[in-house]
């Protein structure tokens, strides 16, 4: 046996399964761009040719949460948007991570008004915070590299990072005709069609 292993020489690499899985994950992060304001422009700049986020294995921006494992919240989130943000976060499959980009996403920034959420970390978990208004693309790349370190150091193939989970189910899926049903209910409630002034 030992003799055979020796013969394999450099063609085999030894590692732990955990670290191999983390290595694969960290180098193929698929970001979900949740860009609601000006920071989104920097996010676009980061993934375009000059700064080229794809050098770090993270270029596949997907607009379906089912395909993503990294949510980048770039911009301020208002009260009306927060339920959407939470739903999208819950729709993403595990393992998943979240970057909060810019002063607004981290703390609400200058928008301390009645409708702007003062930091998304009050309502969803966040792994990396990027300061700045807006942060430069380099800062986003730095955050991505730091996140890769974090994934390498903490990730396990058995998902023990999620072991404490008590309620496994995500958002309740819509039934086939549910959306149509809700619309019909609304129609009765509001006596739609909307353009029917009573006069």
């Amino acid at each position: 046996m030992a003799q055979q292993l020796k013969q394999l020489g450099d063609s085999v690499l030894w590692t732990k399964l955990d670290s191999a899985a983390s290595w694969a994950r960290k180098n193929s992060l698929w970001p979900m761009p949740f860009a609601t304001a000006c920071c989104g422009i920097e996010l676009m700049a980061a993934s375009s040719s000059r700064h080229d986020l794809s050098r770090f294995g993270s270029e596949v921006m997907r607009f379906s949460p089912r395909q993503c494992d990294l949510m980048i919240v770039a911009g301020r989130v208002v009260m009306k948007m927060l339920p959407v943000l939470q739903r999208i976060w819950q729709q993403m499959s595990e393992p998943k991570w979240c970057i909060s980009m810019g002063a607004c996403a981290c703390t609400g920034g200058v928008f301390d008004t009645y409708s702007v959420v003062q930091g998304i970390d009050r309502f969803i978990p966040v792994d990396m915070y990027i300061p700045g208004c807006p942060p430069r693309p380099e800062q986003l790349i730095r955050a991505l590299l730091d996140l890769q370190d974090k994934i390498q150091n903490t990730g396990t193939v058995h998902f023990t990072e999620f072991a404490k989970r008590e309620t496994p189910e995500g958002p309740v899926v819509f039934e086939a005709d549910e959306i149509a049903r809700i619309r019909n209910q609304d129609r009765m409630k509001l006596s739609l069609p909307i353009y029917n002034p009573r006069h």
Partner: peptide
């Protein structure tokens, strides 16, 4: 703006 459920790492 604070009256929303909080989603933690353990339950999402």
């Amino acid at each position: 703006r604070h009256n929303f459920p909080v989603i933690t790492r353990a339950e999402s």
